[in-house]
Amino acid sequence: MPSTLDYFFAPHSPWTYLGHARLVAMAEAAGATVRLKPMDLNQVFPVSGGLPLAQRAPQRQAYRLVELARFAKHLQLPLNLQPRFFPVKPDDAARLILAVEADQGTAQALAFTGRVMAAVWAEERDIADAAVRADLLAAQGLPAALLDAAQAPEVQQRYQAFTQEAIELQVFGAPTYVVDGEMFWGQDRLDFVERALAR
């Protein structure tokens, strides 16, 4: 029986960006069902011991840049270590991803998620800007009306519900993958995710 993979992520997370394409390919190869669950890290961090980047110790911030560069080179993915629009407010982009999924299905939403993250980390674009989000929709051939759909109360309710679910599952960072109830934190755990999907 194919696995189910819950994908807890934040659309401005560089680590989610680095793992996204591999995750999508793994899930497709395994025939797994992916359930997209964007979450608000500003709510997750305070209850899990996490800190926003600017509040972390200098040595942690410095090593983060080393690791980002290391993984980007290894994976051959374009990545600006300190992009112009970061930190960036991700909530509108997260809600838009959910609106895309509701209207177009999970495959389109996964592809759009990749576009959003590449906009931040490869293209230095501001995903908090509605015009940028409209351009990203257009580039994928998606209707501009989804910008308005993303503001609907039910979309915010889903976003909040996924955030609360993450907190209850003791998720503490992005990305977190849950395969048939087993949790894996970080794109550097994708080898283990692949094995779990193959079981």
Rank of each mutant, 00 (worst) to 15 (best):
Y177V: 10
L96S: 10
Q108Y: 00
D188V: 12
G141D: 07
P87E: 06
P153T: 12
F172P: 01
M1F: 06
D103V: 05
Q160C: 14
Q76A: 13
A119G: 12
P46L: 08
Q156M: 10
F9K: 04
P87F: 05
P14C: 04
L110V: 10
A72N: 02
S48M: 05
L41G: 03
V47Q: 05
P52S: 06
V116L: 13
E154L: 14
P175K: 01
D6P: 01
K37L: 13
A134L: 14
P11K: 01
P38Q: 10
M26F: 07
L96G: 08
R84P: 00
R158D: 09
Y17T: 07
P2K: 09
D188E: 15
D40Q: 11
W185D: 01
K73D: 15
P58M: 12
Y159G: 07
A122D: 01
F112L: 12
I127V: 15
R95N: 08
A21M: 02
R64L: 13
K37Y: 07
A93Y: 11
W121F: 01
A198L: 11
Y63M: 10
D40R: 15
P2V: 12
L75D: 12
D6W: 02
M1W: 09
R56V: 03
V47K: 00
M117F: 03
A161Q: 15
E182M: 02
L18M: 10
G19Q: 04
F172D: 05
A30F: 03
Q156N: 10
E165L: 06
I127K: 06
E194H: 01
R95A: 12
E165F: 03
A10Y: 04
A138I: 10
R125A: 13
T163D: 05
D180S: 12
Q164A: 15
E165Q: 15
A93N: 13
Q156H: 13
